[in-house]
């Protein structure tokens, strides 16, 4: 993650460059488009697997909301297995959600409940199998005669040693969340940091929520994360964005993920934050799915803790 500082510097230079240089829109031929299946699947401890299927779109195609909706794929066969048991996932759609799940689904899609229930957004859910620590899960997706396969694992979660809050800089009532983590000695430990205010239905990821132990394998160290919810309020004071205020109570979810899955998310966020500038190379996000699909199949092993900011 430290190299992102270097990327940030170059990105800042790139932005400065944009100020002094001339930028204009051009029409240019971009060959190489091919229609690909996109699989976005996950399973975590104690939770069913959820798999979204969609397709990629030509960069010059419509990029409006309808195109996004049209991209979802129905009618596929989705099967997961933990080595001993197999479950064929059920397709559920936003216009026919099981009672009580509307709010969770709305938060997941980032769409208000009243709009979501009028849309036809479909996902595949393993009602017959929940994630268990130590098990390896294979995913098989069959659609239009093509088969896609992937494997992920739910590892043993790594607990945080402690969680605390402290004022930042000149503030007395605003600050980041801090945590102390003792990383296991094994290599390639990777984590995902998510957070929510207590009472919220869904966890929210920070701007760059994934990190691995490349620089601190086996070490105990302290680190901070910003408050991602503070950016959701368009009327919020911009000076306070990123901070928790004294008195906030939050729930932290630190999930362990595998190496290939971390590789996907690392490259994904690298593309999001550096894509387009000339100092970066064109980087496709590496999938862990075989068969020609894009996306990821990831197993999360979460550990939860609650922090009262004081």
């Amino acid at each position: 993650m430290e190299f992102r500082i270097l990327i940030r510097l170059f990105t800042l230079s790139f932005l400065a460059w944009n100020v002094v240089s001339c930028t204009k829109e051009v029409q240019i031929d971009i060959p190489g488009y091919k229609d690909q299946m996109v699989i976005d699947g996950s399973i975590e401890t104690g939770q069913p697997a959820i798999v979204f299927l969609s397709k990629s779109n030509n960069v010059y195609s419509e990029t409006n909301f309808q195109a996004y909706l049209d991209g979802f794929i129905s009618g596929a066969t989705v099967i997961i297995s933990n080595g001993t048991e197999t479950d064929t996932l059920s397709e559920i759609c936003s216009d026919n959600l099981p009672p009580g799940t509307e709010e969770v689904a709305a938060a997941f899609f980032g769409i208000p409940v009243d709009q979501l229930v009028n849309l036809h957004l479909c996902a595949y859910v393993s009602f017959g199998m929940l994630g268990e620590v130590g098990k390896t899960y294979t995913l098989k997706v069959i659609h239009n005669g093509k088969e896609y396969n992937s494997t992920t694992q739910i590892a043993q979660a790594t607990p945080l040693d402690s969680l605390y809050w402290k004022p930042e800089g000149s503030f007395t009532d605003r600050g980041f969340s801090w945590a102390k983590l003792s990383d296991p000695l094994s290599n390639n430990d990777a984590y995902c940091w998510q957070v929510k205010y207590i009472g919220m239905p869904n966890f929210k990821k920070t701007f760059n929520p994934f990190f691995n132990d490349k620089f601190f394998n086996g070490k105990t160290f302290d680190f901070a994360y910003e408050n991602p919810m503070s950016f959701d309020d368009p009327n919020g004071d911009p000076n306070y964005r990123g901070y928790y205020k004294a008195g906030d109570t939050i729930v932290v979810k630190l999930s362990k993920i595998g190496k290939a899955e971390y590789n996907f998310f690392e490259k994904k966020y690298n593309q999001i934050y550096s894509g387009g500038n000339p100092f970066s190379t064109p980087t496709n996000v590496p999938t862990n799915i075989q068969g020609g699909a894009l996306g990821v199949w990831v197993g999360y092993s979460p550990w939860f803790d609650t922090l009262v900011c004081q």
Binding site: I30, P31, G32, V38, N57, Y68, K268, P282, V285
Partner: peptide
């Protein structure tokens, strides 16, 4: 140069998939 030839969505994030290497030519 190499430019994205397609886009897709993962967890509400728009991602690009790049086309053939150096398949685009600037003016």
């Amino acid at each position: 140069l190499t430019l994205p030839s397609s886009w897709y969505v993962q967890e509400q994030n728009l991602l690009f998939n790049y086309g053939a290497r150096n398949s685009t030519r600037m003016s």
